[in-house]
């Protein structure tokens, strides 16, 4: 099976910096993730109050998807057949640890539904789907390292079987202050001058080289 699918957009968020299709679009020194994510939200003029209720993994995934999709999704009133396939290493462990702390103490026992719901890693996909009206294929996976080959085949299968028009793939890892998001959009045609062929080499380059230009 040979497919000529293309990567048309990418967004990388790491080390307090945002890179859109390889270009450094924002940087903030000396900030923790909470401050940094809020600054990104403001800088890119996102208006979505639900953002502030999200846990950090959802914030990271949401921002990376949002910055990429704002060029692609013109309106959330119409449907957008963009599948979302994400993976990471730490699942929802960042929130799991916080939730466990809230139930560990007999005297200060406080299980909160608003925290508990984020103890599932796929919630971040739900957040992105709600914001962009993506009634589309979705899946969340956990791997120790970014699974370039798996991601490529899974995305190709969704396009080839006509289960999705486009696929937003990504690595959205966050545990405490260590985080990294690399998301990219795969589609059947070469839609802009930056488009590159969707193959293992391109994906690995995108993943390992932040300043790589599409």
């Amino acid at each position: 099976m040979e497919f000529n699918n293309y990567i048309s957009e990418s967004c990388v968020i790491e080390d307090n910096a945002v890179f859109l299709s390889g270009e450094n679009s924002f940087i903030l020194d000396d900030a923790n993730f909470s401050e940094f994510s809020k600054a990104v939200y403001k800088k890119f003029e996102i208006e979505y109050p639900k953002f502030f209720k999200m846990d950090n993994l959802s914030k990271l995934a949401f921002l990376s998807a949002e910055l990429l999709l704002k060029e692609v999704v013109q309106s959330n009133e119409q449907e957008n057949d963009i599948a979302v396939v994400f993976a990471n290493r730490s699942s929802s462990l960042d929130t799991d640890v916080k939730y466990q702390e809230s139930i560990a103490s007999k005297d200060n026992y406080f299980p909160s539904p608003a925290v508990f719901v984020y103890t599932l890693p796929n919630i971040c996909i739900g957040e992105i789907s709600i914001k962009n009206n993506l009634k589309s294929e979705n899946a969340f996976f956990v791997f120790e390292e970014f699974p370039a080959e798996f991601m490529m085949h899974y995305a190709n299968n969704l396009l080839e079987s006509e289960k999705a028009e486009k696929v937003l793939c990504g690595w959205t890892e966050l545990y405490k202050e260590n985080y990294r998001a690399v998301v990219y959009l795969v589609e059947k045609t070469s839609s802009n001058s930056f488009s590159k062929e969707h193959n293992i080499e391109t994906i690995k380059q995108l993943y390992t080289n932040t300043l790589w230009t599409l």
């Binding site: 979302v84 539904p113 719901v117 919630i123 996909i125 739900g126 957040e127 789907s129 709600i130 962009n132 009206n133 993506l134 009634k135 589309s136 294929e137 979705n138 899946a139 289960k163």
Partner: peptide
């Protein structure tokens, strides 16, 4: 098979 999101509510 199909695995489609509601895009409606997280919980």
């Amino acid at each position: 098979d199909g695995a489609v999101n509601d895009a409606n509510h997280i919980s």
